[in-house]
Design a protein around this nucleic acid. Sequence first.
DNA 1: AGCACGCCGACT
DNA 2: GTCGGCGTGCTC
Length: 804
Amino acid sequence: MIAEVIVDVPAQQTDRPFDYRVPEKWSGMIQEGMRVTVPFGPRKLLGFVVKLKESSEFKSLKNISGLLDMEPALNEELLELGHWLADETMCFKISAFQAMLPAAMKAKYEKQIRLTRGMVVSDLLPELQPLFQKTGTMKWDDAQNNELLPLVKKEMDRGALELSIKVSNKGNVKKEKFIKPLLDKEGLITQLGEISKTAKNQRCIIEYFLENPIESPLSKVLKDTGLSGYSVIKPLVNKGILHVQERESYRDHYEQHEFQADAVLPLTEEQRGAMGPIERAVEEKRNETFLLYGVTGSGKTEIYLQSIKRIVDEGKEAIVLVPEISLTPMMVTRFKRRFGNLVAVLHSGLSTGEKYDEWRKIQRGEVKVVVGARSAVFAPFKNIGLIIIDEEHEGSYKQEEMPRYHARDVALKRASYHHCPVILGSATPSLETFARAKRDVYTLLTLKSRVNQRALPEVSIVDMREEMRGGNRSMFSELLFEKLKERVEKGEQSVLMLNRRGHSSFVMCRNCGLVVTCPNCDVSMTFHRVQSQMKCHYCGLEEGVPNVCPDCGSDHIRYFGTGTQKVEEELGKLMPHARVIRMDVDTTSRKGAHEALLKRFEDGQADILLGTQMIAKGLDFPKVTLVGVLSADTMLHLPDFRSSERTFQLLTQVSGRAGRHELPGEVVIQTYTPEHYSIQLASEQDYEGFFMREMFLRKQNDYPPYYYIALLTVSHEDVLKAMDTADKITTYIKRHVSPSTVVFGPSASPMSRINNRYRYQCLLKYKREPNLAVILKKLNETYGRNAAQSGLQLSIDVNPFIMM
DNA sequence: AGCACGCCGACT
DNA sequence: GTCGGCGTGCTC
């Protein structure tokens, strides 16, 4: 038998199957989708079997050298999905396959030295013999560190030793010892009498099993008895008193938490109205896409939960995608309470091992529901009954690295394979989605009212230019400051949002106007107060703050703009009594910090929660009655056609944070452009008004959803090379596309230089471009080919989410 | 991506 | 004469 293998080399020239012979001993075991190790040139690599066949065109085949899986890592559906993903996003097949699996299943390559076949340990130099005694191999690094390489070299020249590469899983399966008594109560008591009085620890263990005569994990036994190490147990096992068995176990991130089952909430009339069509689609196994369009607080999650319940009762599985930042303990708790241990959770807070274990639970069918961020869309379920994408409009569903996929597209693809419905949920759907719902491509389900009948909060817009003219130079308008003070006095909570981290956004010389910019990226650097450092948010460069202007030598250096740190500082001055929690990338980077801060706020340990966008999503605190947006326009003027849409969505989302419970809520939006439609309409919570307005503009400018777009970015350390190549690419495209396609460029990218690489781009807008795949593939081949040598990088993003 | 092969410059 | 620079091309 012959296997076609995609090898673990992400390069243009190796992005095709290579044929290998399957050794006789594995012919019954090997299956498509399994990971294997294969010799590739002088190396040994991981590869995926994509096809099994009887014969090969190729004459001198090598053998597959090892199996890494007992079950296919990718089942038939996922294997096919991988090919589709590679085609669709223009990425290498190997990258597509790896993206669908947990990082733990990537290859770990270890150089090692091994005894040549036919050699025995005693043939070696005496110094080396003990090292090879056990396994006949040793790690290359160990040999190097212990200065053994000269000896090893000698033996290698003689042919006694040889170099080999060990290929293994990056992550490993956790094994745990389980201990149980082999004797009954009587027997244990007898043994207790026979053990010497000095063996205190052994007696302690026996006494433990007298009280708990059941099998327990070793870790539990040790913890309960306060002893440490297996060495205490071993003699008892040897005497035949205890029995030990090593078994696989799962690392459980939520081990410490207990989740009490909760009751199914009664649905409102409106919710039931939305449930009906979903239930019917589920019943009829119809591949229908729903847009569940409901204001914040309208009870979308309960609809998800009850739809999933039906699926699970029928023995089918469900995938729920949630944006990374909304995957809060609150959200997890809600699912765990309803579905207990039938839920797997996948998010970035888990360790590699924990993610691997959740994946294995899914693959083995031990769980029926997955709640997770973007990559959970690849959950290896075999019988999917429903896929849900919450906060459908969120940008985090689009992966910005190599397989540049959108989870929504993958979900729709998988749903069509499984003949199951998809629910897209949002209070502010993306224009693309809402347009499709209006054209009946998706079924629109609307939830107009909040579950508890709470009115939407009252929103005030403050014109900061007026404030400025009125002599208020602080970052708080009078209105916001008054309201904030009032809340603090009343003991109610407020949320303040500013979508910028750091202290001030930039540092400028007032004498010559120089702005401190990153030497690698041509973007202004951000001042961070705590470390008293300038940071580049794109390449991560950190530098000290200049005392004098590096250009003109003037000491009139001033900090401009406002960051979360500066707001915190000013709040401290203006309202010394208010307790503030600041939440941004800097205070939440430590694992678990995010949760801890929110918990503190929830427990009422602070009056004000100050943060960046991350506080805008999904949080639900009963005591929050005021939401302040310090500067609504920060993201409005970015060179991206979606900036209005994103501003509208963000403002609508934060506004929804206020007054979700008994107390009525208020929102204050500060802005320098109060007349802008996305700010006006967000304050009125008028999604449909915004939709109409924005659609008109998109139509005028040939943007999605009227046109599809593809963005090609060329980067090179040399400006001329980058410009020149972008020019050639643009010319090529112009010559080959159909007349209805519009090609822009080449132009400097809005981020003209990142990490010392100059960036030029070319943009295409098209309605139907039958040649697109061929053209892009061709470009990828010609310019991606010698990427390493020429230093040129070409990135192709079909349907980009961020234009920069 | 690695790694070998291979063809031209400055050295024991 | 050789060691070593990195251009070119191959890996079943």
